[in-house]
Amino acid sequence: MNSHLKKAIVSIATAFTLFTTGSAIVANQSAHAATSDEAASLIDEANDHMGVRYVYGATGPSSFDCSGFTKYVYKQALGVNLQRTAQAQYNSNKKVSVNSLKKGDLVFFGSSARSISHVGMYIGDGKMIDAQNRGVIKESIYSSWWNLVGAARVGD
């Protein structure tokens, strides 16, 4: 086999590998919490970290801040890479009304849509799992210490 043919075969094989690997990465990042299996995986992963301590800026698994927790849970459960901060997670995902929340949706808190300071993951029945000063806990999305600004569905 001549060297030009060998180079062509190697180039085609390399291009095919890059194409198929790239497609897998894109498909992986388009996952969302719309199915019950995906939501169950997210909630199971989040439950595995109940009680883990809160540390500002921490991304797990031995400690978390709020957005580090949601980022970690989505990555571990679904292979989805969320943005790092609560504000960036709010800005980069499709907004949904609080009335149409599904398990696995993200819920956001702060003084306004431009000033998001906290994020949690909705688990149904008006509750979320989040990382806050008491660690990773389950709590109501409606409380006197949080101002619910909005919600978003990842990947929709």
Rank of each mutant, 00 (worst) to 15 (best):
1 M>T: 06
4 H>E: 14
4 H>M: 13
7 K>L: 14
9 I>H: 07
11 S>D: 10
13 A>M: 12
14 T>N: 07
15 A>V: 14
15 A>R: 04
16 F>L: 15
20 T>D: 01
21 T>V: 14
23 S>W: 15
23 S>T: 14
25 I>H: 11
29 Q>M: 02
30 S>G: 06
30 S>L: 09
34 A>E: 08
34 A>Q: 05
40 A>N: 05
42 L>W: 08
46 A>P: 03
46 A>L: 09
46 A>I: 07
47 N>G: 01
48 D>A: 12
48 D>P: 00
48 D>E: 12
48 D>K: 08
49 H>L: 03
50 M>G: 00
54 Y>P: 08
55 V>R: 05
55 V>P: 01
59 T>I: 14
61 P>S: 06
63 S>G: 13
69 F>D: 06
70 T>K: 05
70 T>R: 05
70 T>N: 06
75 K>W: 09
75 K>R: 14
75 K>G: 06
79 G>T: 05
82 L>C: 03
84 R>Q: 08
84 R>M: 09
84 R>L: 09
85 T>D: 02
85 T>S: 11
85 T>Q: 01
88 A>P: 01
89 Q>L: 10
92 S>F: 07
93 N>F: 11
93 N>S: 08
99 N>T: 09
99 N>W: 02
103 K>I: 09
104 G>P: 06
105 D>T: 08
106 L>W: 14
106 L>Q: 12
107 V>N: 05
108 F>Y: 14
111 S>H: 01
111 S>M: 01
113 A>R: 02
118 H>S: 07
118 H>F: 11
119 V>T: 11
120 G>F: 12
120 G>P: 11
121 M>K: 10
121 M>N: 06
122 Y>M: 13
122 Y>G: 11
123 I>F: 04
126 G>H: 02
126 G>C: 07
128 M>T: 05
129 I>Y: 03
130 D>N: 15
133 N>G: 13
135 G>E: 01
136 V>F: 00
138 K>H: 10
147 N>A: 09
148 L>A: 10
150 G>Q: 07
151 A>D: 08
155 G>M: 07
156 D>V: 15
